[in-house]
Design a protein around this nucleic acid. Structure first.
Lengths: 118, 118, 118, 118
DNA sequence: GTGGTCTAGACCACA
DNA sequence: GTGGTCTAGACCACA
């Protein structure tokens, strides 16, 4: 995984894991990768993974079983809702940018078609 | 202007100014606000504005006239291209997230309609 | 039994057993539950129970009969003294917090009445 | 400051600072000690102080002004309420222990008088 | 092997 | 000088 400089590494990891949960790479109730294992995979310090997991836990997407590891919350309805909210947030940000740039709806549509048509 | 903690302040300012240029608040060839003036307006240190302007200059959106200040590049075609590229970049990022989350096109459409319908 | 994250599990078990001894659930001279049995009951690893028993033994509240198990010390006077000291320690800690927070005696009394009135 | 082994260092610091806020050592709106300054004072790593401050911020007792430092929340009513709740929590824990130990109210009273009479 | 905490210390953004 | 993030790495509790 490549990290950019615009955002902190830990929050890029949070977003990365969130998308994996939403996409079903990690399903409801399933075990997440161990902290140290993920740290090696992503080539970051374990503490950075801890921070990302901690954020996901605050959002209620995962929980900790003391010595067993971290698990995706076992509530598909909650996961589905969170996913929709996440997309809505991103879509709203996108729409605000297009409005601020005074892009016509027609222009947006043609761009979107180009992208989704790929 | 309100700053969030997800991004550095200077790059939030860069984005803010970029959108103002693209929307025509500052037109091709027009003078940008003075560093100090903008710093006061945004309640940040002048150094932070300097950094944002420097980013815009690297992108070729503005240029410096030694003692007169910073000006929007006098090339409407370039500005238009930059704007389209900017929106394409954002739109691509958005589409990548929706793909990673395995959102169906139908779901996206319903979300987009909800947002643009507002 | 529910464990919290503020304290280590073994010391929560130590406190739990101590209170059972002081309350007479396990009386002077009586046998304590076997390590494995208690481990199953509390859903912890036997090692954790061992550690808690070891703490109680250090405090002189229980002793080991080599092949028979662990027993409550057969000295009611000592148990009574330990109990009073335990409560005094807790009460002293409580009073120190109230003093550090500059709570008036009157406020404490009203809080205590509310709690003990329940 | 002396730390014990029963609780994590960061949460002992959280409690320590909380009591200082509740007692008025740091008043509403007042600046808290800088992270590194406090770390030196308490002879701990700055990260440990960061963690403690972060907990206080989650509880709403302090807030951060980007490059100025951390400040006590400027809401005396909220502080007063938090203080009472904190004491109630501690008092409830104390009363539960006394109940579990089957201490008579009379015994508690005599212990409390001894302590508060000091 | 699992998570939690902590240290020593660095580098960054911002004022 | 202020907070925020990150690394390398250690030690602990628990299973």
């Amino acid at each position: 995984m490549q990290f950019n400089n615009q955002q902190s590494v830990y929050s890029q990891i949070t977003d990365y894991l969130k998308k994996q949960i939403f996409s079903g790479v990690y399903e409801a109730g399933q075990k997440m990768p161990a902290i140290r294992e993920l740290a090696v995979m992503l080539k970051v310090n374990p503490n950075t993974v801890v921070r990302a997991y901690s954020d996901l836990e605050s959002e209620g997407l995962i929980y900790t079983e003391s010595t067993n590891g971290k698990f995706v919350i076992n509530d598909t309805e909650f996961l589905q809702k969170s996913k929709i909210n996440y997309i809505k947030k991103i879509a709203t940000e996108f729409s605000e940018i297009t409005k601020e740039c005074k892009i016509s709806n027609q222009e947006i549509m043609s761009i979107m078609e180009e992208i989704y048509g790929k």
